[in-house]
Design a protein around this nucleic acid. Structure first.
Length: 352
DNA sequence: ATATAGTTTGCTCGTGTTAC
DNA sequence: GTAACACGAGCAAACTATAT
């Protein structure tokens, strides 16, 4: 039997080379959750790009294939790629996907149109005025056939129409994913998450202790101590630290660029004051109090309860009298800054 | 589930402002 | 000038998020 090679690289994910149609590998691969890609012309493990190799899945698949008489070699390169490279690839693939889905949606729409045309034709072929089928007449058979045909054509057209709408929906959704991935608020949250992840790995690397509980009688604390990671585990942790630090740096760069481009405004406690109004999740709110990491807000429309908005979640700020509040070098500036910002603030007013 | 770190809130206190 | 009041800084308590 032929020799199969399972390879894992972060750029391409996990693939298997050397299979051919009907050689018996298909069933085994399917049961081990591999998928066939017409695009790649190969079987692959879903969600394996830029991830660590799924060793368990790879090994069990290999074992099953060997059991079936294949010779299998495994080649794993588990080194991470720089975040910038990963992102570039991801965006490019997404663009290609959008293009393909767009083309598909167009094809489906055209097919739907054709189907409706066929339905019209079939309907028009029916005898005038909803004439009943004359039983026993020489036209009975033909009449029955054409009624059935029209009914059939209608069904096909409706199905086709639904498929077209679904395809269009998928294409539109795909077109928005990259945008959403780089939306300022999302990026800000991702930075928070990565920073937390990094702290976690650093703790594992350096060791830590935690109090399980405090004896209320003696006041003594039961402490669980975690030693710093050693050996292979430590190596792995160091690798993860490097990866997360790289990702964090990448996204911080993205955020810095967004700030430079004016896509986000760095609101802070130095900018917002009590009495201001902020635009947050679709509506304006009164600022009740300014805190270090957020503002305490109250809904303008008859709100008695208060809510909070982190500075990164604030979309716009205006002063109590409605003048736009800008940020210049991290400081508060009320009103129009110059001629170019005048237009902007007018737009804001009309939106308000 | 629990401890702890991090944040916000309610409140006090001191200072400045206003009314008389 | 003094009392009353408003306001913000600062602090402890309350609350929330995070980590395991």
């Amino acid at each position: 039997m032929s020799t199969l090679t399972i390879t894992h690289t972060h750029a391409d994910g996990t693939l298997i080379d050397g299979t051919s149609r009907d050689d018996g590998s298909r069933e085994i691969l399917k049961t081990h959750r591999w998928r066939w890609s017409r695009n790649l012309g190969s079987w692959y493990i879903p969600q394996s790009r830029d991830r660590r190799a799924k060793t368990y899945q790879i090994n069990t698949t290999a074992a099953a294939l060997r059991e079936a008489g294949f010779e299998v070699t495994i080649d794993v390169d588990d080194s991470y790629r720089p975040a910038a490279e990963v992102e570039t690839d991801k965006v490019a693939r997404q663009e290609a996907r959008v293009e393909a889905l767009d083309a598909k949606a167009d094809r489906k729409a055209a097919a739907a149109e054709t189907a409706w045309g066929a339905e019209r034709a079939a309907y028009n072929a029916l005898p005038e005025g909803g004439e009943p089928i004359k039983v026993g007449h020489h036209s009975e058979n033909r009449h029955r056939k054409s009624v059935e045909k029209a009914w059939d054509a209608l069904g096909k057209a409706v199905t086709s129409e639904r498929e077209a709408a679904a395809a269009r929906g998928r294409a539109d959704a795909a077109a928005r994913t990259t945008e959403a991935r780089y939306a300022p608020v999302t990026v800000a949250r991702r930075i928070e998450k990565l920073a937390a992840e990094l702290r976690g790995y650093e703790r594992t690397r350096d060791g830590y202790s935690r109090t399980l509980f405090t004896n209320s009688q003696t006041g003594l604390k039961e402490i669980e101590k975690h030693e710093p990671a050693t050996g292979a585990h430590r190596e792995r942790v160091l690798e993860e630290i490097e990866r997360v630090a790289d990702e964090l740096a990448y996204w911080e760069g993205v955020r810095a660029q967004q700030l430079a481009d004016g896509k986000v405004t760095p609101y802070s406690k130095n900018v917002v004051i009590k009495g201001d109004q902020i635009f947050y999740v679709g509506s304006w709110h009164h600022v009740v109090r300014v805190n270090a990491k957020s503002v305490t807000i109250r809904s303008i429309v008859g709100g008695s309860w208060t809510d909070r908005a982190a500075y990164t979640e604030i979309k716009k700020v205006r002063s109590a009298d409605g003048a736009p509040v800008h940020v210049v070098d991290g400081a508060r500036v009320v009103g129009d800054i110059d001629a170019t910002s005048t237009k902007l603030s007018q737009e804001e007013d009309s939106n308000a």
